[in-house]
Computed example of a mutant assay.
Amino acid sequence: MEDSIREALDARSVVRKHNGLYVVDRKKVFIKTNSSEHARLLCDGEARSLEAIHDTNTVKCPKVIKVFESSKGTWNLICDYIDMEDESAAHKEKLGEEMAKLHSINPSLLKREQEKASGDFIGEEKREGERRFGFVVPTSCGVIPQNNEWCDDWRTFFIRCRLKDRVDGIIQKYGDHELSSQWSQLERRADDLLRETDSVVPSLIHGDLWAGNWGVSKENPVVFDPCSSYSDPEFEGGIQNMFGGFGAPYTRGYDRILPPRRGWNDRRFLYLLYHNLNHWLHFGGGGYRATSLSLINSILHPDIDSD
């Protein structure tokens, strides 16, 4: 591996430390290696996601150095190494603020373009906003590719490229008749619940921001392992209450900049469902199947008040 890194980076010295940490010409780098079926897609998708987040100058993330193949079918993503510190409630609140700023960048760019077209914008903005939902390359939330086909509205993108894509994958892989029988109802209900999002413009999201995909460096929150897309920013919240979540400090920081929109309490079950379906597809039935079917039942037969 050291020889492959030396060749890829045109380096003189490569020293392997531990857990993906290498020292290349006296500089620490972190290398993620993947040899799964979709290894190149996974590395390319994560690299493009990190680059997109980095370019917003909002929340900190590792800087991409290179994607390269070290042996046939084995792909690697090289990033700057970031030393991490202990997290606190204050860091979670700051993470919430910075994620809200990340989600605000593309809408701000689109607003400036509109103002510029009308003659109301004073100044110069070289970056252009993205008007569609999707992403420049496929990504993977796990090891199974996500469909990031560009769509003109969030409702179409979420139902076709997120929800149906995972439902179809589960039915094909596991032949689950109960899930199959519920799809037509779920599709209609999702379409109805998402009608209030038709005026939403795309935001760049991390895509897999759970408690294990962030840390702190020099008092600044750091996010990593993204699978980004231009989506409704609410979708980011779908996984944030799984595996421990972030709690009130994150929500407090986020809501200061982007308060929750009307209907969020209903839509959040759809976004939580996607991530449970994704884990069901990856790891099989059991708990994820039970939770997914329970969520579908709650979506089809709501027993909570809409806000």
Results as ranks from 00 to 15, higher is better:
residue 24 V to W: 04
residue 123 G to L: 07
residue 121 F to R: 02
residue 234 E to H: 06
residue 153 D to V: 13
residue 132 R to Y: 05
residue 144 I to D: 04
residue 125 E to A: 01
residue 293 L to P: 03
residue 33 T to S: 14
residue 25 D to L: 03
residue 276 N to R: 14
residue 233 P to N: 13
residue 24 V to K: 04
residue 179 L to C: 09
residue 38 H to E: 11
residue 52 A to P: 05
residue 149 E to P: 02
residue 295 L to W: 03
residue 155 R to V: 10
residue 96 G to L: 10
residue 60 K to V: 08
residue 201 V to D: 03
residue 58 T to N: 04
residue 151 C to W: 05
residue 139 T to Q: 00
residue 297 N to A: 13
residue 97 E to N: 10
residue 142 G to I: 10
residue 159 I to G: 07
residue 268 R to L: 12
residue 280 W to G: 11
residue 212 G to M: 06
residue 241 N to A: 08
residue 77 L to W: 03
residue 22 Y to F: 15
residue 166 R to D: 04
residue 206 H to F: 06
residue 269 F to E: 15
residue 288 Y to S: 08
residue 29 V to W: 01
residue 250 Y to L: 15
residue 4 S to C: 14
residue 211 A to W: 02
residue 204 L to C: 09
residue 69 E to Q: 12
residue 246 F to Y: 14
residue 120 D to Q: 13
residue 296 I to G: 01
residue 47 A to G: 05
residue 145 P to G: 11
residue 255 D to A: 13
residue 113 E to A: 13
residue 126 K to E: 14
residue 225 D to K: 00
residue 123 G to D: 06
residue 235 F to K: 03
residue 196 E to D: 15
residue 267 R to P: 05
residue 254 Y to A: 08
residue 170 I to V: 14
residue 150 W to Q: 12
residue 60 K to M: 11
residue 212 G to V: 09
residue 217 S to K: 02
residue 133 F to P: 03
residue 257 I to T: 09
residue 306 S to D: 08
residue 54 H to E: 15
residue 124 E to R: 12
residue 174 Y to H: 11
residue 303 D to P: 00
residue 132 R to L: 11
residue 232 D to N: 14
residue 303 D to Y: 04
residue 46 E to W: 00
residue 107 P to N: 07
residue 250 Y to E: 09
residue 135 F to K: 03
residue 33 T to P: 00
residue 131 R to E: 09
residue 147 N to W: 07
residue 182 Q to P: 02
residue 156 T to H: 07
residue 119 G to F: 08
residue 231 S to D: 13
residue 106 N to M: 09
residue 106 N to W: 05
residue 72 K to C: 02
residue 147 N to K: 15
residue 157 F to Q: 08
residue 280 W to E: 12
residue 86 D to S: 14
residue 39 A to V: 04
residue 162 R to L: 08
residue 124 E to D: 12
residue 281 L to G: 05
residue 250 Y to R: 10
residue 200 V to H: 08
residue 79 C to A: 01
residue 214 W to G: 01
residue 217 S to R: 02
residue 231 S to M: 04
residue 143 V to S: 14
residue 218 K to I: 01
residue 161 C to N: 15
residue 207 G to P: 05
residue 147 N to A: 10
residue 227 C to R: 00
residue 175 G to C: 10
residue 103 H to T: 09
residue 40 R to H: 13
residue 115 E to R: 11
residue 133 F to H: 04
residue 149 E to W: 09
residue 292 S to T: 06
residue 68 F to N: 00
residue 40 R to A: 05
residue 148 N to E: 11
residue 184 S to R: 11
residue 279 H to D: 12
residue 289 R to D: 04
residue 163 L to K: 09
residue 260 P to C: 04
residue 206 H to Y: 07
residue 121 F to K: 03
residue 173 K to P: 05
